[in-house]
Simulated assay, not measured.
Amino acid sequence: MQLTLDIPEKYLIFQSPTELVRLLKLNTDIDLYRQGRFSASAAAEFVGDLDRYEFLYECRQRGIEPQTYESTDELQAEIEMLARELA
Rank of each mutant, 00 (worst) to 15 (best):
Q2T: 06
Q2M: 12
T4G: 01
T4I: 12
L5N: 06
L5D: 03
L5Y: 03
D6H: 10
D6E: 15
D6R: 08
D6M: 13
I7E: 09
P8A: 13
P8G: 10
E9L: 06
E9Y: 00
E9R: 00
K10R: 11
K10P: 06
K10T: 03
Y11L: 12
Y11I: 02
F14R: 04
F14I: 04
F14C: 02
F14S: 05
Q15L: 11
Q15M: 12
Q15P: 01
S16G: 01
S16A: 00
P17Y: 02
P17N: 04
T18I: 06
T18D: 13
T18E: 15
T18N: 11
L20D: 08
L20R: 10
L20Y: 01
L20K: 01
V21Q: 05
V21G: 09
V21W: 10
V21H: 11
V21P: 04
R22N: 02
R22E: 09
R22H: 10
L23A: 08
L24A: 01
L24R: 03
L24M: 13
K25L: 12
K25M: 05
L26I: 13
T28R: 01
T28D: 11
D29P: 00
D29H: 04
D29Q: 10
I30L: 15
I30M: 15
I30R: 09
L32N: 15
Y33T: 04
Y33G: 02
R34F: 05
R34S: 10
R34N: 02
Q35L: 06
Q35P: 09
Q35R: 12
G36N: 06
R37T: 14
R37A: 15
R37K: 14
F38N: 07
F38G: 04
F38A: 02
S41E: 15
S41H: 00
A42M: 09
A43S: 11
A43H: 02
A43W: 09
A44P: 01
E45W: 02
E45G: 07
G48T: 11
G48C: 15
G48R: 06
G48H: 05
G48I: 07
D49E: 13
D49C: 08
D49N: 07
L50F: 10
L50E: 10
L50T: 04
D51M: 13
Y53N: 00
Y53Q: 05
Y53A: 01
E54S: 00
E54Q: 08
E54C: 00
F55C: 08
Y57M: 09
Y57D: 03
Y57N: 07
E58S: 08
E58N: 12
C59R: 00
C59M: 11
R60G: 03
R60A: 13
R60F: 11
Q61S: 06
Q61F: 02
R62Y: 06
R62L: 06
R62H: 12
R62W: 04
G63K: 11
G63M: 14
G63L: 15
G63F: 02
I64H: 00
I64W: 11
E65M: 00
E65W: 02
E65P: 01
P66F: 07
Q67N: 10
E70N: 09
E70C: 09
S71V: 01
S71K: 03
T72A: 10
T72I: 15
D73V: 08
E74P: 00
E74L: 07
L75H: 05
L75K: 07
Q76R: 15
A77Q: 05
A77G: 02
A77E: 03
E78C: 09
I79A: 13
I79T: 13
I79L: 14
I79R: 15
I79E: 10
E80G: 03
